[in-house]
Design a binder for these strands. Structure first.
Lengths: 338, 338
DNA sequence: AAACACGTTGGAACCGGTTCCAGGCTGGGC
DNA sequence: GCCCAGCCTGGAACCGGTTCCAACGTGTTT
């Protein structure tokens, strides 16, 4: 492997001059600059990243921590981070915590030493443990899908998404809307809940029905569907698309038609949402864009303490329909008991 | 940030001794070893990765190149790579080529300088360009889901998977099985095709019907479904699960019942395969395991030139059923024309 | 008692770049 | 024609570790 020393020798200049020439620094004659460039090209010279990192203090990499790479939500964010980093000449070091909160501190500190900045996607750590940890990393940090005092973040206008979804359902005549929530520790679930609480009650005066907290997976949706049916809801708003897919599957299994009998709304607009039948009505969230913005936030180009809230948009597909006429609906024993 | 020099000073020993003590090298007295350990602990010393990389020549990171992080196939492999790397104290640098063959060489060379080894997942580059590129990287390389002469790889026993799928379909009475293929440039598609060709023909003497090549996506499946219907196939074997999902959706849209009228078999057993309705019968492929094995291959612990072919297993779900009785089947005009 | 072997220690070179600083050169202004 | 400013240039220090090697001290062998 050719070193800068070799290039300098081949070009007949000193190490210092060769370095300056290749880094487009001033104080190098045009002749030498060309000579060095030619030598470097011919020798196939590529600077040694570790050596450069040692002197400059910057590694040219950004770190990304996600709870689960196989979750399409995080995969989409990762893709955005990756694209933006690459476009700006940086590499990305990725770490998957496997949804285990306890390894988060370890993963973060291990990464912190080797990167110029750290993107944390939906960290599960409680706020009081996250704060100190982040200041201890030393480098810039950006949060995705979560906000915390004093640390730059990019999140989504969840309240607006909830509002759009609810407006849509109410326009279809649904007064009894159920919410299938996510984990209590989730920042974005809390965001959804406060938005639901702040909204004006439905036409009949009923507020949104809280079904409780479910694991943010297909399995969680299956559980939620049973509860929603028992509660007699005609529409279910779900924490995310995975849950919505679970609800859809469970309703189908129990012989309840979607959207004829029950409407279902998801959140995130993951790729699978548009591929399933019936295609899912869901709140589209710009995941890849969030990843890109997060990388930009690390650079700290913006003078402000960097905080971005991205807009979301309800996309109406085939899983929502007008509320069924009460008379047509067969008596549900579970509801009758209630 | 505390350096080794600080630790040495605090422990009252030389730089060399401190280094040896912390790396568990011999020639350090027990007393000094303890002293250094205490000083390091107290100062919160963490070795500088770049400095260490510069002298040792090893970076403690592995690189991973995938065509698309958001594709569940690659996401699963990435998760495996990540897990194994972390477990062995290494980090992973990930790069997404966005399915663009032309950027592959650039991505690979950029990564090669910063890693101890490179895992290439389904590289799209033709063999004659891939070979020279890999030797030029200098470091160890492992291929996933592809084989190439002289380079370690981990692939799947695709031929066996195809055989299992076909056995299953033939046992159900399907003689006219169509194959919805993947890209012509895909190594694993070629593998499937040779397996199909080598297999004995069906009971009626018909070989498998080749529908052609499709993009390995939901959209590709939609196209394939129309062709399969036109050809009068009663079963479709798909390049992968995404294609199978597309086939399923298209059949449903055209009012063809699955599996009553047409059986569908996927490949890979991506997470979505078990969540969709009807749940997909598919050839399960150990993706995460492949990622883990690939990382092990890089270490070169194994004396052999490292080549692993992992077993696959057909998982039968709800998208396959016995061939419908010809008399019951409504006349299909498109088939009639044929 | 002298020579020797061995375990321990620290000084120093080294990895491959970046950058400070002093010195040499050229050109313009007086 | 001389002086000074300013651009180029290369030597050397430095980043933070690892490791070779010479020197040291102790305990053992002859």
């Amino acid at each position: 492997m050719a070193t800068l020393r070799d290039v300098a020798r081949a070009a007949g200049v000193s190490l210092a001059t060769a370095s300056r020439a290749l880094s487009d620094a001033p104080h190098v004659s045009a002749a030498n600059r060309a000579q060095v460039a030619r030598a470097a090209e011919q020798l196939g010279y590529r600077p040694h990243p570790a050596a450069r990192a040692l002197t400059t203090g910057s590694t040219g990499t950004v770190g990304l921590v996600v709870p689960d790479l196989a979750n399409p939500f995080f995969a989409a964010v990762a893709k955005g981070v990756q694209a933006r980093a690459r476009a700006t000449g940086r590499e990305v070091l990725v770490a998957d915590t496997d949804e285990d909160v306890t390894v988060e501190p370890d993963v973060i500190t291990r990464l912190a030493d080797r990167v110029d900045g750290l993107v944390l996607c939906s960290p599960r750590l409680p706020a009081d443990r996250l704060g100190p940890l982040l200041t201890s990393t030393g480098g810039p940090v950006a949060l995705v899908n979560r906000e915390a005092p004093g640390v730059p973040s990019v999140s989504f206008d969840i309240a607006d998404g909830v509002r759009q979804a609810l407006d849509h359902l109410r326009a279809l005549g649904h007064d009894v809307v159920a919410y299938a929530g996510g984990p209590r520790t989730s920042w974005s679930d809390a965001e959804r809940r406060t938005a639901l609480g702040a909204l004006p009650a439905g036409a009949t005066g009923d507020a949104v029905l809280d079904l409780g907290s479910f694991r943010p997976t297909h399995g969680g949706g299956v559980q939620a569907a049973d509860l929603a049916l028992a509660a007699g809801a005609t529409a279910v708003l779900c924490f995310n698309d995975l849950v919505a897919l679970g609800v859809l599957a469970r309703l189908h299994a129990r012989g309840v038609a979607t959207p004829a009998d029950v409407s279902v709304v998801g959140f995130d607009d993951v790729a699978a949402a548009s591929l399933v039948t019936p295609a899912l009505t869901t709140v589209a969230v710009p995941l890849a864009r969030a990843g890109r913005v997060a990388v930009d936030l690390l650079a700290g180009d913006s003078p402000a303490p960097g905080h971005r809230r991205l807009p979301v948009e309800l996309v109406v597909r085939a899983s929502t329909a007008p509320v069924p006429a009460p008379t047509v609906r067969p008596t549900d024993p579970e509801v009758a008991i209630r």
